[in-house]
Amino acid sequence: ADIPWAVKVEDKVKYDAIFDSLVPVNGLLSGDKVKPVLLNSKLPVDVLGRVWELSDIDHDGMLDRDEFAVAMFLVYCALEKEPVPMSLPPALVPPSKR
């Protein structure tokens, strides 16, 4: 479905800047590079584990630019006390992954 992506353009720009600051290799960030950033949110590790599961859409243990944006979006939602969903809502699936 061509539902608009839940991640707003201005947020995506912000997430991309963080993504690039973590020095992606072949456009991918490994878990150990992303982990400190997500831990910085002070969210419980089990919540971050769920954020990772939902954002690592191809389950390759790495996050690409879009997957990283999904992870950041879920972290910000959790910080605003929005519970992390059990499954990725269709609106959150990056257009590149549909």
Partner: peptide
């Protein structure tokens, strides 16, 4: 129940 995911690809598990 949420799939706990595999620790091999999840740095938090």
């Amino acid at each position: 129940q949420f799939p706990t995911g595999s620790s091999s690809t999840n740095p938090f598990l």
